[in-house]
Amino acid sequence: MNWRAIRAMYVFEMSRFFRTLLQSFVSPVISTSLYFVVFGAAIGSRIDQVEGVSYGAFIVPGLIMLSVMTQAISNASFGIYFPKFIGTIYELLSAPINFLEVVLGYVGAAATKALFIGLVILGTSSLFVDLSIQHPLAMLAFMVLTCLSFALFGFIIGIWAQNFEQLQLIPLLVVTPLVFLGGSFYSISMLPPAWQTISFFNPVVYLISGFRWSFFGVADVPIVLSLLAIAGFTALCLGIIWWIFKTGWRIRA
């Protein structure tokens, strides 16, 4: 392993993040606050507890997941698309590194940024609602795994995209609906039976459910299924990336 190369890519990517630290910090704080004003105060005051948890607290895991997933995808997809767009990818291709090292550098940085945002939202949330985290280690593990797997997914999108529109397409058309319909703001058990069945085909349901379990000890699906879902998703993304680098698809002209 070329650890120096991994570090160089990681540090370089992170420096882009630190250049815009204020924006990176302020925008999740503001959007989380808005969610709490709308869902927590305005709507939440009319909703009783959900599965024994106050509605304001209930939506916290979903809110964090929503931001973590979209941030991981957009950071990773932009991180690898930008060098392709401006041409600096030649350096990555001519360097003595393999695909795993590129992935560790770029995906690692994107996941770190998403994790940072997730923690900021967690901190902001604790200002609005009383939060007790029953399984803090599991919570952290779920968050890190989600950051990593969605950063891998974003990396694939970044390589696949041939223009900025395509870069936005998958997050906007696929990921956001899946996250919103994945029980971010409600429990699956609140849905009519038919919709419950449909929801179980949504992979995001398993992630949010597992993440919520680590907070409140209640889940829509068994925790093992949540872990399997995220492991499977990670493995699938890694497999696709390995294939991309092996064939040079959309990278090597």
């Binding site: 120096r4 160089a8 540090v11 401006i86 600096t88 030649y90």
Partner: peptide, 22 residues
């Protein structure tokens, strides 16, 4: 092919690290 917002020293440092040099 250069990142417009990056500083000269940083991009040069990046290149050195990318090739595994201390």
């Amino acid at each position: 092919n250069l990142e417009p917002f990056e500083r000269v020293m940083n991009t040069v440092r990046f290149s050195r690290g990318l090739f595994g040099k201390p």
